[in-house]
Design a protein around this nucleic acid. Sequence first.
DNA 1: CGTCAAGTTAGATGTATGTCGAAACAAGAG
DNA 2: CTCTTGTTTCGACATACATCTAACTTGACG
Lengths: 126, 126
Amino acid sequence: MSKQELPVLQPLASDTGSTACCTPPTREPLGQADAEELAPLFKAIADPVRLRLLSLIACHEGGEACVCDLTDAFDLTGPTISHHLKVLRKAGLIDCERRGTWVYYWINPAVLERLSAILGPRRGTS
Amino acid sequence: MSKQELPVLQPLASDTGSTACCTPPTREPLGQADAEELAPLFKAIADPVRLRLLSLIACHEGGEACVCDLTDAFDLTGPTISHHLKVLRKAGLIDCERRGTWVYYWINPAVLERLSAILGPRRGTS
DNA sequence: CGTCAAGTTAGATGTATGTCGAAACAAGAG
DNA sequence: CTCTTGTTTCGACATACATCTAACTTGACG
């Protein structure tokens, strides 16, 4: 795992006074290992269909939605929707459970919050 | 442009009581236009090299770094780094300016904060 | 001017990814 | 058991992307 969960993509507010090349870093930047672990997560949400899928699930009552809800919202075939859901699931962004006839999906808020924290300044650390 | 800047990917805390298919949404989910506008932004950061580039720039003193700093941090050729920087620049995530011999890059915090806000709960709206 | 160094752009290539239809596969309902 | 609903798998295809080499642009310095 990564040893830091800081907004390493947000600059620290500091004066702009450097005029020379190769100024030193003020914080430890994202390591290669961390970057290669994070990139697939962002890649999972870097798709219009998957963004909408996440949003549709999150905006549903109870925070979960069944696949029929999701499929109807797109002009895509069932298998394609299923593929995108699988991508999101493999990334850990969503989970699912079969309940009777239908399969329900819900958001994993922790993962999304982690990505959010890395991108921007967090006003609280849970 | 998008008319909402809410954490539409985070579920509202609510009871899980739905047992029927096709429950209604509790909020307006991300529209297709918004999703197609956001996806390229996430795609821009969905790469290990670009994530590290952003981090390297953000962590540098003064919030800016010159290309030589960045190139040295990778086992990639100059043109490849330049290509990734261009992707980030086209997405509006960074800006650059030539200052004498070197070109300096800095983060555009607003765009990153916007993405952060969409992914997770924001503790402040400014 | 002429030359050197720093970056960018252009072109080419191999790989990865999104999309899809058809078919196979669960899981309940009657 | 049989039918219905819905999901997953499997190839196949087109597109997009990361990366390289080579050539070009721009500014600094004699």
